[in-house]
């Protein structure tokens, strides 16, 4: 039995977002949307987090930060790209300092579209992420068991 579905904790990082999606991520914690119903907490610390919610596209400087944060998260972990910028770069695609979507740097598992992404779709993305977490945990267990058999 895996418990990730019931208690996914989120770390939010603003890679180069314009704040629009950031605020919607924060708003999804608040009374109207209240993601804590699903046991979701915004931890603010990679070492406690299960889901890394990235808003905004990636630039030279935030790339390293993202990699650092990802490195410090314990397995299983899921990357969620929130908003169009994080998905593809949105209107900033052509900017000289924008590398594109988050998937240029990290393996993204869930894409949440929208400019700005609406809280409803963010919650939907989080719940998708939970399923992927469970899957990853199951895979890891299988892999470890497999290694034991060999």
């Amino acid at each position: 039995m895996a418990w990730f579905k019931r208690s996914p904790w989120i770390l939010h990082y603003n890679a180069t977002s314009c704040n629009g999606c950031d605020i919607e991520v924060i708003v999804s914690l608040t009374p109207l949307y209240d993601v804590e119903r699903f046991g979701i907490i915004n931890t603010g610390n990679p070492k406690h987090a299960d889901i890394l919610a990235v808003t905004g596209s990636v630039n030279e400087k935030s790339r390293q930060v993202l990699i650092n944060l990802y490195e410090q998260m314990p397995e299983p972990k899921v990357i969620m790209a929130v908003g169009l910028c994080a998905v593809s770069g949105c209107v900033f695609q052509d900017c000289y300092n924008v590398m594109g979507g988050v998937d240029k740097v990290l393996p993204v598992d869930v894409y949440v579209p929208g400019c700005a992404a609406r809280p409803e779709s963010i919650i939907d993305g989080m719940l998708k992420a939970c399923e992927i977490l469970e899957e990853k945990y199951a895979n890891r267990n299988k892999r470890e068991k497999g290694e034991e058999h060999e």
């Binding site: 990082y13 610390n45 990679p46 070492k47 930060v65 993202l66 650092n68 944060l69 490195e71 410090q72």
Partner: peptide, 9 residues
């Protein structure tokens, strides 16, 4: 892993 340094490790 490294210590938590705000992602600036």
């Amino acid at each position: 892993v490294g210590t938590y340094l705000g992602g600036a490790n």
